[in-house]
Each structure stands twice: as structure tokens, then as C-alpha cells.
Design a protein around this nucleic acid. Structure first.
Lengths: 95, 95
DNA sequence: CTGACAAATTGACATCTGTCTATGCAGAAT
DNA sequence: ATTCTGCATAGACAGATGTCAATTTGTCAG
């Protein structure tokens, strides 16, 4: 995983609503309307957030009929965690 | 660590320059002028970034004479990693 | 085909953010 | 004391971002 990807993921997680969405998805897949119930935002705004979460690879979407089932992409999440791990161990871009 | 703190840290890491700064600090403490050499930004811009990194607790600063020595706050970083870990394990805010 | 429903897209808007130039301020050197 | 050096602050500005209302698209049920 490249630093640019990591920054993209961090920007995605840098919004409280999106962080909460990821939290909810970590507990299991959810469709958009289900997610929407838990927030004080409109449907277009949620759609916008989901696009950002999908865009950075953190979330996957599966269209079923008229529903969109969202799920956490655990591969991306693991790679993200691993990057932070190596960073913490001082294996980053040293001088 | 609260979700708001996590979002703050993520926003801080969501900028490529700041992510790179954290990477450099993970390899050892550095003063501002040393950090500045590695970027194409002006000194006030770097100062702004350092303020954000300190503000979310990821970075500590120690003033020595006219120099500012910056270092990675590994406690905060660990807490951040742990939060992501529990999140990945589906222990987040479930429905 | 028509109507209903889920989701995405568009366009607008206020706010936030990264960047710069200019300036201020404290410690060091002369 | 004056000057220099390292860093912080203030103000300005363009571009990104989160949000909404309105509309569009796609799918299912009658």
C-alpha cells in the first residue's frame, strides 16, 4: 500500500459520520436505507459518503435489486493497519 | 480513545505532507528546520502542519533554545492503532 | 405501462483547509 | 544593544469538503 492510498483512507475516516459508518459495517453488512436510519443526514449525503468510502477501497458495495448492500473491505483495512504498524516501528521514510 | 479523537487523528494523517512528517518522526526525533528540508513548502506552512499534528496528540514538541524538537507520541499512536483493531474485529457501534 | 421505492447524480452554498506573504517574538551571537 | 536565526502567528486566498433540495436512474409491483 502506497502513502497516497493511506492518506486517502485517512481522509475518508477523518469525517465522524464516515467513521461511524465503518464502525457499523464492521459489525456486519448493511444496506443504505438501514445505515441512513442512524444518521441525521439526507439520503444524497449518505450516498456521497458511501462513494468516498468505496473510492478509497475501505467499503465494498453489492447491488441487489434496488438495494445497495455495503460491507467493510477487510483486506484493505488490514493493509491499512499493517502500514500503520510498520510506520510505528520506525520503518518509514527516514532521512 | 473516543471516536472524535480518532477522526481528528485521521484528518491529521489525511494530508500527504503530514503523513510523511509522521513517517520521518517515526525514525527518530527531528527539529523543524530539519523537517523543512524535505518538503517543498514554506516554513509557516510546516509550522501549521506541526500544530495540527500536535493538536491531535500524535506529535510532541520540546523547545530547546530556539529549536523545536518534534517527536512521535507513541502512546497516542498505539491507542489509535488499538482503536482500529477493535473496529476491525466488529466491536464497533453495532445496530 | 404506470406508480412506488432505493439509490445516485446534479447544482448550489457555507465552511474548512492548505498554502502563501508579511510580520512578530524569543534565544544566540556579535 | 543590535543583529541574526528558528519558529509561531496573522491575514488573505484559491480550492476542497459536507450538506441540502431537486432531479434522475434503475428496479420492482400492480
Amino acid at each position: 500500500m502506497e502513502p497516497a492510498d493511506v492518506a486517502l483512507i485517512c481522509r475518508a475516516l477523518g469525517d465522524s459520520n464516515r467513521l461511524q459508518i465503518v464502525q457499523m459495517l464492521s459489525g456486519g453488512d448493511k444496506c443504505a436505507c438501514k445505515l441512513l436510519e442512524h444518521f441525521e443526514i439526507t439520503q444524497p449525503t449518505l450516498s456521497h459518503h458511501m462513494k468516498i468510502l468505496c473510492g478509497c477501497g475501505l467499503v465494498k458495495v453489492q447491488k441487489v435489486g434496488k438495494w445497495a448492500h455495503y460491507s467493510l473491505n477487510r483486506e484493505t483495512f488490514s493493509a491499512f493497519q499493517e502500514y500503520l504498524g510498520t510506520l510505528a516501528r520506525g520503518r518509514g521514510t527516514e532521512e
